[in-house]
Each structure stands twice: as structure tokens, then as C-alpha cells.
Amino acid sequence: MERQALVEAEQQNDLLEQIAALPEGERVLSCLQCGTCSATCPVAPMLEHSPRQIFAMVRAGMRTEVLRSLTPWMCSSCYECTVNCPAQIKITEIMYALKRTAIRERLTTDESDVHRFYKLFTQIVCKFGRIHELLLLLKYMMLRHPVGLLSQSLVGLRMMSTGCMRIQPHKLRNQESFDRMVEKALTFEE
């Protein structure tokens, strides 16, 4: 009976299909569950769901659990898993895809605010063309860690004194062309 349920889950598994349809996801069905990804992942010991477990959960159709999991947000993009996967699954790229899907479907977990950092970073780059560290850190810390802001301000002041924290954001020369490009890129959901 359990086996039957699993087979059915795989048949109606739109997250699995969605990942397999990605240019980087075609090999997801070749996962052997060998655990090499979890063994090479530097953050795996701190995760509730190791990368191997995430792939088992995807396979089992646990869509919401996967998209609400902290695992993709704790991925540091170090590509250890990707270069070591014997099935040649592009795991890091799939983690990016899970993050994008979680944001799009508003399934980001409140346990982590990494997605807020990523969204703020993207907003600043869309506006100025380059990242502005001071704005990013101020907005991020004020939003989520007002107490941490105080302890961080020492490092920030030190970096301002060495000239390594810009006060004014950079201005692009071709701002209009850049804006039109960004506007068009944002019309695509991928």
C-alpha cells in the first residue's frame, strides 16, 4: 500500500516535473540517494534536511516541505556537491531554482531571512546597477536585526574610516537604457 502511495506521489509530482524540465534539472531523476552531496556539504551538519534528504523529499512529492525548507537558503553556493555528484546532478543550480520558486510562491520561511537579504540585494542592483553595501546592510539590519545593527556599526564605522564603505551609491552613465533592460528582464518568470 505504501509503495502504491509512493508511485502515485511520483506520478502527480509537479515539483519533480518542474525541476526535471529546467535546463539544469534534467538529471534529477538519476539521483542514487548515495549521500555524496550531504557528505561534501559544509553546512549539512547544521541543516534539518540534508541535500540528500531534499532530493528524497522532492521525489516523494513533499512540495510544500521542500519549498519551506531552510536548506536552499543555507546553501553557500560553494559547488562541492555539484562537482562530486556521481549522477552529475547540478545540485547548486537546483538549489537556486528552489529558492526562486519559494519566493515566487511566497513559501519562504520566517525562520530564515536570507531571502529578504537576497531580495534587497536584487532591488539595489536593479536601481543603481551596482551593489551599495551600506544601503544593503542598513536596510537589512533595520528590518530584521535592530539590535544587531548596533554591534555591527563598529565594523561599519571601521570600514568607513578606511574608505571601504561607500557613502554615496554609484550612478550608471546609461541609466535609462539599464532601466529598460531590467524592466524587460523582470517580465520573464524563470
Binding site: 553556493s77 537556486y96 531554482a97 529558492k99 526562486r100 519566493i103 531571502h115 537579504f117 537576497y118 531580495k119 540585494f121 536584487t122 542592483v125 536593479c126 533592460m181 531590467v182 528582464a185 523582470l186 520573464f188 524563470e190
Partner: peptide, 13 residues
């Protein structure tokens, strides 16, 4: 690695 976690087309663009 940040923008690709939010929007892939934007990141590549």
C-alpha cells in the same frame, strides 16, 4: 549568486 536566487533571466541579463 544572489540575483540568480531571485530571478534567473535578470541575473543572466
Amino acid at each position: 549568486t544572489t540575483v540568480i536566487s531571485v530571478n534567473k533571466v535578470l541575473s543572466l541579463t
